[in-house]
Amino acid sequence: MTTDHIPAQAPAEEPTPALPFGKPGRPFGSSPFIFGFTAALGVLTAWLLVQALTATASMLVLIIVSLFLAIGLDPAVRWLQGHGLPRWAAISTVFAGVILLFAGFGLAIVPAVSEQAGQFVEQLPGYIQQLQNNPQVRDLDRRFGLLEHLQTYLTSGDLGKQVFGGLLGAAGIVVSAVFTALTVLILTLYFLASLRTVTRTTYRLIPRSRRERVQLLGDEIFNQVGGYVAGNLFISLIAGVTTFIFLAIAGVPYALPLAIIVAITDLIPMIGAGIGAAVAIMVSLFVSMPVAIATLIFFVVYQQIENYLIAPRVMKSTVNVPAAATIVAALIGGALLGVVGALLAIPVAAALHLILREVLLPRQDRH
């Protein structure tokens, strides 16, 4: 009686501390079926990924902004750590400063806007009386019944519906803005607390033969992003303080809120300074035309000083990007993601410039 020889089964690999779940098995063999199945699965995965990115685009923007802010705030945390604070205390201190900045902006802007709205409502009858005393308005009223139509419109229910709808829309915008700001703050806090763990895990995904060089390049990119944020905040602080001093001397009302608006909008590349200046000039028109002209001249002169003296000196040691690349990056980023894209464009350009200089160009020189 003969029996077929049955090969002995190989003993299972015992778990080790390095491989707690055992040694990985041999890879599957290649066949047309496996290749086709893998290709179809890859196409399906890519399609699902595109759909997921489209559906979550707004939240992804918030995540990217929060990560950008966390990387930008990390140098301040490391500086406090270097002066003896533990990391949790350094993160709490920096984050408390960010919250105080938001709170100070709200306390400076909201009362001024509320006061101006109240004054407008109180002075509205006087404005109507001035319109009635205007010869041109009286002539239009005599020919077209302008004031009668205006009175009918004001007393009808349509105005109330429009005002109510407008208030609901404004309230929705305010609630959405508050929710977005809270989401960004919370995500920034989480990213800032776990930034070291995230970076270490990311570096471990790189093959060991290239991990050290990638880590050096990544740390340099993080340093440049942090330097860009710190430098941009410093430039905006200079713009806000200078604007406050000028507006206070010129007698423009609400000098502090206007200076804060100028400082915040100055963070936006290319167009931010113009937005803040336009707001300040419009408010100065209520003082007098000479004051408005002086305010316009002040902002024109200050922008030249900031663009050609302050910004190059501050950014020279942090973000080494050619001026042409900065402008192109800001334009492309603004076209893709609006204000957020313009803010993120320059650090991204700095990272690409570093990779081009340290990786791509040396590789091309070797061939």
Rank of each mutant, 00 (worst) to 15 (best):
S114F: 07
G341M: 05
T45A: 15
R142K: 12
G42I: 14
Q151S: 09
G84I: 01
D139Y: 09
S66N: 01
G338E: 06
G169M: 11
T152E: 15
T45M: 13
F246T: 02
G165F: 13
F105Q: 06
A263M: 10
L336T: 12
P15S: 06
L168V: 13
A103M: 12
A323S: 09
Y254A: 13
V94K: 04
A52V: 09
I64V: 15
G240W: 00
G36C: 10
T152C: 08
S92P: 02
F298E: 01
A255V: 04
Q304Y: 05
I6G: 03
I275T: 12
I268G: 00
F105W: 13
L296H: 02
L189Y: 10
A239E: 05
A108R: 04
L182D: 07
I6P: 06
S209I: 13
A350L: 10
E122G: 11
Y153R: 08
L140Q: 02
L309S: 10
T45N: 11
P125H: 02
G160W: 07
V300H: 10
V98Q: 10
S288F: 03
A277R: 00
D4R: 14
L60D: 03
L195P: 04
P17C: 07
V340P: 11
A345Y: 00
V241K: 04
P24R: 02
